[in-house]
Design a protein around this nucleic acid. Structure first.
Lengths: 345, 345
DNA sequence: AGCAGGCGGTTAAACGATTAACCGCTCCTT
DNA sequence: AAGGAGCGGTTAATCGTTTAACCGCCTGCT
């Protein structure tokens, strides 16, 4: 690989001059500029970014630390990050924590080893010790979706999303809603749940079960669904909604004729499900751009106060929701109270 | 950030000794080893990988250059690559070419700038000039799915996959098959098509249209589907299959009762579709591991002859295929010959 | 005339790690 | 006893780039 020294020799100047020409850090006469340019081209010179990074302390690389690449939401986020980073001339170093806090910590340390200028991070678990203790001393961090105290953060307005769903379902005439909320410890799940309940509660009580983000339904969730006495299911996210639709269909129920189902996120295939899924869209492209912007701003001014950006969400009405069928349900209504956990307060 | 010099001072030894202790490159007395370890721990020392890379010429980073992060297949591939890379102590630098050859070239150059030890690459277009000319002089490359001459490559056995589908459909009794093959220039599409036709041709002719990999169907594809006279649709991949199932369903046809549909790849949500999709699974985890292994082998021995690894595929039978309904089709059979392109030999 | 200051370039010191070469010392061999 | 080998450590060169400091030289001001 041709180095700057080679270019300098070829052009008959010092390496300093080559550097100045290539970076424009100092004015160089037209003649020498031309000679240097020509030499660089002739030798196929390409600057060694490692060396440059060593000297300047800037790698032009951003770390992306995600909890799970198997989750389409995070993948979509990555997809949104990529163009924003490129626009800023940065390249992404991606680390998949595979939902494992130990792996996440390893990734964090690896990135702290001077490999990246900053990190865009969706923590596996905001309550894990290494998150609070922030074992990464002085590496700028922007969190997305799962904000960590004292970091810049980008989050969607989950509360508003929950509210939109509540209003949509209430508007259609639903009043017996089963709620499959996501992991209790996640701010996103909590926000969606709160928004939904606050906007829906005046109408009717709600049966609820906590579940993961997988399309595999928990035993508790299945019991709740088997119990009947609901005319709509509000799911933790689109993957869960997909699992629910499948489960209901297999049991001979029709979505949306017998039961309406809603998800959250609007992943790519939500519109391809049968029926197409009504859900809440998070503005991923904007969130990715915001995260990159926040990180660059902090790189420019490390002392800046941390900021939290809340992005608006949008209801996407599709075929999985419809007015409830007012004919009584096949199941008995009396046994319902035993199933599912009671809504606490 | 504490550097090696700091550790050396703290432990009262030279930086060389610190390096030897930390890397185990030379034997150091138990006492000093202990002192160095303690000092490193106390100062929270973490080696600067940039400096290390500059000196040794090894970054411990692998580049991953993908054509499109919006395509779930490539995302799944990335997901398969991540654990394999980690197991080898490497971290991944991911670049999304967004199906744009110019962007791909930019990514290639960026990675050639000493940022990675080697590249795992799925080219946007194997016929693009920068692919053949390989504008990346001496950077080890492993291609996946779209092999480039004179590189190590990992590919699934697409021909066998096509054959499996043909045998499956023929076994069910289908003999009027519409073929929506993928982009003609891609080796994967060509292989699937060839395998299918070779195994199916003895039975019956095939109507065919070339299409992209998107769930948005081309006008030609829609015309073919509208034409009728088929009892099964063989799709370029799962995304296309999903679009086809939706299109057919909207037109009142039932899958698999009226028409069987098959895809290719077995992406994550293939099993969640209604009906669940019969498809061919590519062994992604194994392919990712193979790619990393090939790349590491080449790093170890740059002179080694290039190798191509062909991975076995597997038919996954699900609900989207069934024996054909022998009742005659609603459409007329006579007008069919006009629609779709004739099978060219 | 004398001096400040700009211009266009070079010199050389970093950045942080790796590693060949070397230096005393001890111990073994012949 | 002389020479060689091994041990445990240090010195110093090096990777490729950046950039502060410096050096002549020419201009223009007073």
């Amino acid at each position: 690989m041709a180095s700057m020294k080679d270019v300098a020799r070829e052009a008959g100047v010092s390496v300093a001059t080559v550097s100045h020409v290539l970076r424009g850090t100092k004015h160089v006469s037209a003649e020498l500029t031309e000679r240097v340019r020509a030499a660089a081209l002739a030798l196929g010179y390409v600057p060694n970014l490692q060396a440059s990074a060593l000297r300047t302390g800037r790698t032009q690389t951003l770390g992306v630390l995600l909890p799970d690449l198997a989750n389409p939401f995070f993948v979509a986020l990555l997809h949104a990050l990529a163009p924003a980073a490129r626009a800023a001339g940065k390249v992404l170093m991606v680390y998949d924590a595979e939902n494992d806090a130990a792996l996440e910590l390893a990734g964090l340390q690896r990135m702290a080893a001077g490999q990246v200028d900053g990190i865009i991070w969706v923590p596996v678990d905001v309550d894990a010790p290494h998150v609070a203790g922030r074992s990464t001393p002085e590496l700028p961090v922007v969190t997305i979706d799962r904000p960590v105290p004292d970091t810049d953060a980008v989050v969607a307005d989950h509360v508003a999303g929950g509210r939109l769903l509540a209003e949509h379902l209430a508007g259609l005439g639903h009043n017996r809603v089963a709620l499959l909320s996501g992991p209790e410890e996640l701010p996103s799940s909590r926000g969606r749940r709160r928004g939904f309940i606050e906007a829906f509660a005046p109408l009717t009580p709600v049966w609820e079960s906590h579940t993961g983000f997988s399309h595999e339904l928990s035993a508790e969730a299945r019991a709740l669904l088997d119990g009947g006495n609901y005319d709509a299911v509000v799911c933790a996210n689109d993957m869960v909604a997909s699992g629910v639709m499948r489960y209901l269909t297999e049991r001979g129920l029709s979505v949306p004729n017998d039961v309406s189902v809603v998800g959250f996120d609007d992943v790519a295939w939500a519109s391809l499900m049968q029926p197409a899924l009504t859900t809440v869209r998070q503005p991923l492209a904007a969130m990715g751009a915001a995260a990159v912007r926040l990180l660059l701003e902090r790189l420019g001014d490390p002392q800046r106060a941390t900021r939290r950006v809340v992005m608006p969400v949008e209801l996407v009405e599709r075929g999985s929701t419809a007015p409830p069928d007012l004919v009584t349900w096949p199941g008995e209504a009396t046994e319902m109270a035993l199933l599912g956990r009671e809504e606490r307060n």
